[in-house]
Design a protein around this nucleic acid. Structure first.
Lengths: 115, 115
DNA sequence: CCCACTGTACGACAACCTTCGTACAGAGTT
DNA sequence: AACTCTGTACGAAGGTTGTCGTACAGTGGG
């Protein structure tokens, strides 16, 4: 069950905006921007694994993130250069705004709800 | 029955992105950007009046456009400076992308479906 | 080989979104 | 006053989204 990733020139602005137009996904992207890559499970997003999988899929299929498996974990990274090529400036706008308010991760993470 | 408009400092990036994350509204915004203000009914968007009202409301309540009544018509305009102040660069990104593909209005407008 | 761990697959459910038709409200015209 | 025109209000239908629980698949460690 390979993970679908759209090619850079298939990215649709409308899909990217729709993916970012959700508070949870917007926070995830801002958190992710502070590292080059991270393990999916390391995010303190306060939803179950099933829900998290759903949101990762939306982010991946809109072309915002790339995911790959390594051992038991899935890694995830922002597709910075692809986004910058197709929609120059967009990521800057989003991240700059996210930096203002609660983009920082909690010192005491919420972790997944009920595992 | 006044039309609700959020203040500039109440605008939420997430709402703006969600509003733009719809093909119809994205096209409307790109068309609207080519003029300072326009009559709502002058857009060739191919949906009924009721549906158009819905989309104008989403755009208005997210803070992307301002609407006001003059005589029988409603006028609409992009809130360029408010958007630029709160999310600098965002509108540029969106309009630049919209300029590539079908942002131009049809010479032979579709007009409303079934009036 | 069996267990623990990370994440996906699937099915369910409620909430929301998009669209429409119909009815109505307000403004201008005749 | 009656009519037209633009757009809103409301309710309904159908689709999509966000969330969850449960079950399963793949990997690595004992």
């Amino acid at each position: 069950m390979g993970l679908f990733h759209p090619e850079r020139d298939q990215l649709q602005l409308e899909d990217v905006l729709a993916a970012l137009g959700n508070p949870l996904r917007l926070r995830i992207v801002c958190q992710l921007a502070q590292a080059d890559e991270r393990v999916c499970g390391s995010f303190a997003i306060g939803v179950t694994k099933a829900t998290a999988t759903h949101h990762w899929r939306v982010l991946r299929e809109s072309g915002i993130v790339r995911q790959w498996q390594a051992g038991r974990c899935h890694y995830v990274a922002l597709r910075r250069s692809d986004l910058e090529t197709r929609f120059p400036g967009l990521l800057d706008v989003v991240l700059k705004d996210g930096a203002k308010d609660g983009a920082e991760e909690h010192a005491e993470p919420i972790r997944l709800a009920r595992t």
